[in-house]
Design a protein around this nucleic acid. Structure first.
Lengths: 100, 100
DNA sequence: CTGCATCCAATTCGATACTG
DNA sequence: CAGTATCGAATTGGATGCAG
């Protein structure tokens, strides 16, 4: 749970399931995350080999984040988890309504 | 992630996958968790309808914790997550070794 | 754009001791 | 057995501002 727990790590991995993303793309995807936190979490995921970082071609400020080969293997797990969470939320909202 | 994140919630759900358990059973299963934390997490999971609590037959101190009907639906997710985590750990240990 | 520095509030979690 | 009470350390993450 340490790997993908916390408020952001799972969300970051989920956001990268589709395609590689730039820093700003992630930032707006995960809004309202702050730069400080996003940076930290990306470094953590990089150290743990779940993502890889490509520093831009040329001297541009173009950095790209993507699932590593190994990070891809967790995509199905993350997506299944999300599906379950959505179902769960529905159920919780229903029981809230029927309790009145 | 809030539901099963943190150090213990996922582990508790995993521990209850097999069969209902008593407080002490969970406590030793999840060793070194403390009573204080286990109590808190169980209350949280109860409030979120992932587990149900059966207070003992008679006046005995016999309380039983089990997956709720809905909690059962997350068992496959939890177990898949665990499998993936095990694989991940293996891979990380290997790369540690080959780095020397 | 991509990030680091500083500061700070809230939360989490653990140790320990105690109760009916 | 199944918790509660108290205390404190450590971590997390948010706000804001600055830099190359």
């Amino acid at each position: 749970m340490e790997l993908i727990g916390g408020r952001w790590r799972g969300a970051i991995m989920a956001s990268l399931c589709g395609s590689p993303k730039r820093f700003v793309e992630l930032k707006s995807d995960l809004h309202p995350i702050t730069s400080r936190v996003l940076t930290k979490e990306l470094r953590y995921l990089e150290q743990n080999k779940l993502i890889i970082v490509e520093y831009g071609n040329g001297a541009k400020n173009a950095v790209c984040y993507a699932h590593s080969e190994h990070g891809k293997s967790c995509a199905p797990v993350i997506l299944q988890l999300r599906e379950w969470a959505v179902k769960h939320r529905k159920l919780m909202l229903e029981t809230l309504r029927t309790e009145h």
